[in-house]
Design a protein around this nucleic acid. Structure first.
Lengths: 337, 337
DNA sequence: CTGTTAGCGCTTTCAC
DNA sequence: GTGAAAGCGCTAACAG
């Protein structure tokens, strides 16, 4: 690989001059010299070495993103797309994405190591939790990062999130528009942040329509297909007059479990009961019936996240931004019309 | 962040000495000094800056992996897992994964850029094609890389691949064991490398059982759910006596289309007709009926790939290795028993 | 054994 | 306008 020295020698100028034209210090170089250097660069196929630049600038133009394995049998369709769009968004800002892994139960050391070795400029963290130890650590370290998802309300950091409340509101509103009045929700345990925003949307939509919420219509389960089956079974076991005619699930995986159970019980989803999922997994469109779901605007989220970490570089003290992005209801056959 | 100078000053030694203990040049440092330095390092929380090390060593310890978007409506469950395991395998060898993107139709510039800027040490390429332009380019550039998948037989490069022939052989053998004799295959167009290895396994299993292959049992389609539906419809339209009792699909997505069509036509998959997929997408286990499929050993593949690129660093002229890894048939209800 | 020193490839004062 | 030179943080001859 040619270096700046080669260019300087070939062009008959100093390396400083080459550097000036490289960095577009127009006022420092005469047009003649400039053309000369540019021509040489072109001719010998020179590109500045990024490691050297990075060393000089004490930055790496690398954004770190950690992955941990999805628990067996579960899945996270959103994150699969997320990483692609994040890489793409990073590139439009001159960054690259560096992925790394860590044990599920002890993420912090991996982050700490990357910071100490100066391997990356900033982090993006996803799947945030309450009192998220990664966020706590990064805040304490005063290291630049942005989160896909919220955490403690009084922790002051950059985040971008899907408006789960709005998404679930849309879903329930749609079901109400279809004539449903007895609408149940199968949610996650209350310790999930994003889960609770979805629950809130469910409540708000019912309230807006003047429908009373019922405690027995709120089922709390883990994010597993089997749990979805059990939830459906329970809901369908209610006395005929109380039985929900529609159900919203906190996730497509749970919705699939519910659909499977309905089918097992001889019911026709979309006719005998309406079911709506959340996340719009790639497979959901191919289910029988195709699953109505809420699609998160992943691409926009990633763009916003990269904007945030990039802004942090420019001004580390810039006050944290919070961006909420509207998801979109994708109507398919599982909720009838 | 503390630097090597800080350590040297604190410990009262030269930076060379610190460097020696850092790099475990045991014979060069007395045990006393060594302990002294180690203690200081620990105390002030020093970790060598990786950019500086990289500049010195002209390497980055970064493995590049490119992603392009999956065409609308399709999916690639294997690659979703692939990237996770690749990141993990890279880390066990002291590397990190850097992901980048490029236009589907013109991948080479992105690779070229990364090479010229010295951003990464090696590449891993996936979804290889015949006369793959990326592989051709990397070969011409003599840049270290390893491929997940094969390409032209006479191109000499490191690759690791799932033994698709073996996988499909297992599937068909299993169906034959179940008593099926009329077994059709829904495959990709012949220009797909991995598709053809799967086709080969299909033929071999039939031959081993003394079953004649029939041209009308080999359907060639694109990797879309809708195409799977049409393939099924065609196969089921054969005269009763010729109608296949079992079908293997080149992919879970295609198998899903076939299952959906069967269901639409009032058939019970697993009883009226057996269907087997390939890739074991996360969702396949939750289909009704659950889809029998062939699971690729992604974790092993990634380990092998990182071994290969790592070996290339140690000895750039080492002769390319070819590793074929056995997949595993996951039997579920879609093929009956 | 330990320290001095010369770079790795680049950016950026500071002189001229 | 241009160039000499210092230095980012580290490694590895080379001297001592």
């Amino acid at each position: 690989m040619p270096t700046i020295k080669d260019v300087a020698r070939e062009a008959g100028v100093s390396i400083a001059t080459v550097s000036y034209v490289l960095n577009n210090k127009r006022s420092l170089v005469s047009d003649d010299t400039r053309r000369q250097v540019l021509e040489t660069i072109e001719r010998i196929g020179y590109t500045p070495n990024s490691t050297a630049r990075n060393l000089k600038a004490s930055r790496t133009r690398l954004i770190g993103y950690a992955w941990h394995q999805v628990p067996n049998g579960q899945m996270n369709p959103v994150l699969d797309q997320f990483i692609y769009y994040l890489a793409q968004a990073a590139e439009t800002h001159g960054y690259h994405l560096m992925t790394f892994t860590h044990p599920t139960d002890d993420p912090v050391p991996a982050y700490a190591e990357l910071i100490r070795t100066g391997r990356i400029d900033s982090f993006v963290v996803a799947e945030t939790t309450r009192r998220d130890p990664r966020i706590r650590f990064l805040l304490d370290s005063e290291f630049p990062f942005a989160a896909f998802g919220r955490s403690e309300a009084n922790w002051n950091f950059n985040w971008v999130d899907t408006d789960g409340t709005e998404g679930m509101y849309q879903a329930v509103e749609h079901l109400i528009g279809l004539g449903h009045r007895r609408i149940a929700m199968v949610a996650w345990p209350e310790d999930s942040i994003s889960g609770e925003y979805r629950v809130k949307g469910y409540h708000m939509a019912l309230e807006a329509a003047g429908i009373e919420t019922r405690a027995d219509y709120m089922i709390r389960i883990e994010n597993r297909e089997q749990a979805g089956r059990e939830a459906f079974q329970y809901l369908w076991s209610l006395p005929m007059a109380d039985r929900p005619t529609a159900m919203v699930a906190v996730t497509d995986l749970v919705a699939v479990g519910m659909m499977n159970q309905a089918e097992l019980m001889g019911l026709r989803v979309g006719q005998d009961v309406a079911i709506v999922g959340f996340d719009d997994a790639p497979m959901s469109q191919y289910l029988r019936p195709a699953l109505t779901s809420i699609r998160q605007p992943i691409s926009e989220i990633c763009t916003a996240l990269v904007n945030q970490v990039d802004a942090l570089r420019a001004d580390a003290s810039s006050s944290p931004q919070h961006v909420l992005i509207r998801p979109r209801l994708i109507v398919r056959q599982s909720c009838g019309a």
